[in-house]
Design a protein around this nucleic acid. Structure first.
Lengths: 264, 264
DNA sequence: AGTAAAGTGAGCATAAACAATCATATGCTT
DNA sequence: AAGCATATGATTGTTTATGCTCACTTTACT
């Protein structure tokens, strides 16, 4: 029984019955009470449940979402990239995030940065503003009250959860973003950043244009792939965060274009 | 029985009956009177009820409770209402759905109507179009290929997952809806349909205005509640779907206004 | 007003739950 | 395969929740 499984089992229990005791969970899942408490703490931190003495109760937010979103499966590489990305962010910035699995990890990593929690009740402006066209990211982040979530409208694409089309473009016209974290399907110097669908590419392109700084988050596999629709040329990108598996020649080419390379 | 659960049970008792005695609560919840008094004290401190000798009474603020206190309960009632709602829909219609637990059930019931599955691959127009300002609903429905999901943009509100603000309004201006299924916090003839927050009310109001037909989905408890912000007057509503627990006099009043009442 | 009954808050005792720490085990990276 | 990071379980001292008693206050009834 690994941890992710346990976390989703706990959530299932708590959502189904409204609350769980530490002891019961411990018995049901066959781990010590200490572990259950630690699990409760991480779920409480994500606001998926509320701790009580002796157990935990469901929060409003844990009732609405399908479980699949709540418990991510582990992708260590993407998580490391995401962590580095999240560390680039400072208080009160406006962050853009598009759709995709890597971007979703960035959103989670941002949410995990507890220092963004409201310092005191007086503080009115949110610690962070996230603009996204991915409904799954919006749904996940909505429970964090220290983050203001702005969702572009649009038509949802089944595979990627991204919102596209004129409604999304209208909204993006009116926002100004400090940093965009761009997940891509493929990336290289000639093609630039690319997505699998032209509608996604278009919305992502606009997000790039509205943003002072663009950071591509891409594991090394993306540099050997190809994808249908170009988002923007490589020189539009300020920074790339990737893992150590990328070919050094490729990295050198990118550096030639003035792109900062960060290995997570 | 842990403390949080007890607190919400007490709140439920006090909201439902208007007041509770210490003894009764003690007996019902199986704890000593001392504990009940301490519970009353913490709830009184949070202004969710007012202490009296021998018991406690509901305050205004305990009537429009935030979701946090509501224990996950059997949603059979809402599911029945949602099923009836979903059966009102025919192929190719444009459906509006706002946020809230009842609305979410309607969305699920719609998704369960398998006859909307694409008849064959030739068919290009979607079997159903759903316009929603609730990110949780959008996230849940996005995986169904036969439904086109249009999300209003906007700023996400933590408790309800609803998108509000000017971005949402801009998008809604440009869509035309056949039927809106409206979840409400409270409903009666004088107040009309009401939500807990003025931003939500405003977006919901606009959804109503853009819609040829408006169907309120509300379990019977909504007719005895009150809520802060009015969405629209009762005569803007064409149909109400509710359960059999509603006072017949209230239903008669609603029928006088020309509202069709459906008991699920 | 006077008195009895019920309700209350404070203090105390007990049991359960907790956080912190450490040692061990497991698993991932190089 | 070695080394590092993470996960887990056990231990310990501390905190919290609860029920009980008792002295006091409020309410209700004569």
């Amino acid at each position: 029984m690994n941890r992710q499984l346990r976390l989703s089992s706990i959530l299932e229990l708590v959502v189904e019955k409204g609350s769980v005791e530490v002891d019961d969970a411990s018995r049901i899942l066959g781990v010590s009470a200490a572990t259950i408490r630690r699990d409760f703490d991480v779920l409480a931190k994500r606001q998926l449940l509320t701790r009580t003495h002796g157990g935990a109760v469901a929060t409003g937010s844990s009732l609405g979402l399908p479980l699949t979103y709540k418990v991510a499966k582990d992708d260590k590489v993407k998580q490391r990239i995401a962590k580095v990305a999240a560390e680039m962010v400072t208080r009160h910035q406006i962050i853009g995030i598009n759709g995709g699995t890597t971007s979703t990890e960035v959103a989670r990593a941002l949410a995990a940065r507890t220092e963004f929690a409201a310092r005191d009740a007086q503080e009115h402006s949110p610690a962070l503003t996230v603009v996204t066209n991915a409904v799954n990211i919006a749904a996940e982040l909505t429970v964090r009250h220290q983050i203001k979530i702005v969702v572009t409208g649009g038509v949802a694409r089944p595979q990627s959860y991204e919102l596209t089309g004129p409604f999304a473009e209208e909204v993006l016209k009116e926002v100004n973003i400090d940093i965009t974290f761009l997940g891509v399907s493929a990336f290289n110097t000639t093609m630039g950043a690319a997505a699998n669908h032209e509608d996604e590419a278009k919305v992502n392109r606009q997000m790039v244009q509205r943003s002072k700084r663009v950071v591509v988050v891409a594991d090394s596999s993306k540099f050997t792939r190809s994808a249908f629709a170009t988002i923007c040329a490589a020189d539009q990108i300020n920074t790339i965060i990737t893992d150590s598996g990328t070919d050094e020649k490729m990295l050198e080419e990118l550096r030639q274009l003035g792109i900062e390379i960060v290995i997570a």
